[in-house]
Design a protein around this nucleic acid. Structure first.
Lengths: 306, 306
DNA sequence: CTTTGAGCATAAGCGTCCCTTGGACCCGGA
DNA sequence: TCCGGGTCCAAGGGACGCTTATGCTCAAAG
């Protein structure tokens, strides 16, 4: 079927024979025995349909067809080694591109340190970053628009989330477990409580975050027996803090988001029944075995451990 | 040893997979079964050291390394098919160069018709012609300066010739057996004899041809019991005829040489104990299997049969 | 002239690779 | 729920390729 095709091995042997002028010398150069070279050339001549070599006792010359093949072999083998080199560079972390998508509060903390580590350890690799919230980032991952998606999920209430954008078929590397905290104005009646139950805030006006966070907030509150009154919704965390500090309401934020935001005029309270969100790095099973992707995942994991 | 090398087969399969987007479709295109494609790709990924494909349920995408390989594969496979095409053209007589060396009286009769036949039957081939006498032409053949040497030998007296430039290791295609005739002036005492013995011309002045012919003439005469007195020697056959016609001597010429020379003022006599020379086409054993060379040899043989 | 070394071809043996067959699993659509 | 397309896995068999061993030719050296 696919036989009688000229293979790269044939050209390598032919080139060695043409360069050395003898089967034995070519065999030494190739690291094999002389009959192996002899058989390869016989096979190649069979595929070519015409002699390629002139065995004239003394020296080994090329026929016209042989010269044509050697001439082409130079370019073909050069292209082949270039291809091998490029692939080896990607496999050896001397090259490679990783497109990373992260949600905002992840990209401002975890991702920068991971990216810096990658740049330092593997200068040839290039990791790019785009921000997107989880539902969208998983879509991008599946569509081939990125290699890694840093996302989060709420372990307890994933009924709706799993249905819409479940990622059972993805590789999920857990990075850290992010605790949610309540933020209230400094003058709030509970500002000195330290810990608080969600139900105690049933009557407060709320300031919500991104759509997923907002949905989760509603779910948690309803499980506590009340429906939060949400006056504002923004995924800009400094803005949330500002609104809280201005006394316009209370909010619940992931601790991770507070690491890079100065909570001026607001205080944080621990939530009584601890509410957490899991931050994971997602990728496709095949991509997890790509060296640059795996290295980036490792760096993300290290960065998550502080 | 030589393993782990990327082979052309791998690239062919990879290209088919990338083009069709599925292993099964690629298998259909390649004319093999799907597991064969699957194994080839697994082997290629093993050699590459990194995944090349992303199997995401529905569609089959390429990783960065996969794209790099496909990109190189285009050029590599194009070069390979170009090489196969060029070799196939030579093997199929649509191309090919044959350098032919012939002695003068051969090139004026046999060779032109053979070359004309080659050009008519195989327009892509190019047969070039250079003239050289046998000792030199065989040297050129051995040195790789030509593919075919049209030469002649004297069957009976080859003791000296065989020692110097014997061609037992060459392929000798017999073309024709050329009878030698004696040429005498029209006014010569034997002009009407029709046939003549060499000994009858013992006292005549002789006009010899090329060095080999001259040497052969001396050998034949000495086997007849006399040493010829050679007054002139030239390998220009019309000149020989002219000298004979002018009554300056007698000569012995191959019949073939007289085909293209008008024997004005001279008559030809058959030699009593027939003396012949064998005209053969010589080539190297490997070259005899080159289609263009074999075709040229066939044409020469046909031309020799008239 | 004999000898010796180098080089190529061939044959036999054997390991490996590769392709095929058959079956299982997964998924999306009727 | 069934069915069809697609992939992977396992097993079998056939072909390929390399190696060892042997014979041959040729050229240079003794």
């Amino acid at each position: 079927m696919l036989k009688d095709m000229i293979e790269a091995r044939h050209l390598r042997v032919l080139r060695a024979v043409a360069a050395t002028g003898s089967f034995s010398a070519a065999a030494r150069e190739l690291g094999c025995t002389q009959p192996a070279v002899s058989q390869q050339m016989k096979a190649l001549e069979g595929a070519a349909g015409t002699p390629l070599l002139i065995r004239t006792g003394r020296e080994m010359r090329l026929t016209e067809a042989g010269e044509a093949l050697v001439r082409h072999a130079a370019g073909i083998l050069a292209g082949l080694t270039a291809a091998e080199e490029e692939v080896a560079a990607i496999a050896g972390l001397r090259a490679g591109r990783v497109r990373l998508v992260s949600f905002p509060s992840g990209s401002s903390t975890l991702v920068p340190t991971a990216l810096a580590g990658m740049r330092a350890a593997h200068p040839g690799t290039r990791v790019s970053l785009v921000e997107a919230e989880p539902p969208r980032s998983v879509e991008m991952l599946r569509a081939g628009d990125c290699e890694i998606a840093v996302a989060f999920r709420y372990p307890q209430a994933d009924d709706a989330a799993e249905a819409g954008g479940g990622w059972e078929d993805l590789v999920a590397r857990p990075l850290l477990s992010d605790r949610l905290v309540v933020v209230v104005p400094r003058e709030h009646r509970l500002a000195g409580a330290g810990t608080v139950g969600m139900a105690e805030l049933a009557e407060e006006p709320w300031i919500a975050g991104c759509p997923r966070c907002r949905r989760h907030l509603v779910e948690v509150c309803e499980s506590e027996g009340f429906t939060p009154r949400i006056d504002f919704a923004t995924d800009d965390y400094p803005a949330v803090i500002g609104l809280v500090a201005a006394g316009l309401g209370v909010a619940v934020l992931p601790e991770l988001a507070l690491e890079s935001v100065r909570a001026k005029g607001a205080v944080t309270l621990e939530v009584k029944p601890a509410v957490r969100r899991e931050v994971v790095a997602l990728t496709l099973p095949d991509l997890a075995r790509v060296p640059a992707v795996a290295a980036t995942l490792d760096r993300l994991e290290s960065a998550a451990r502080r």
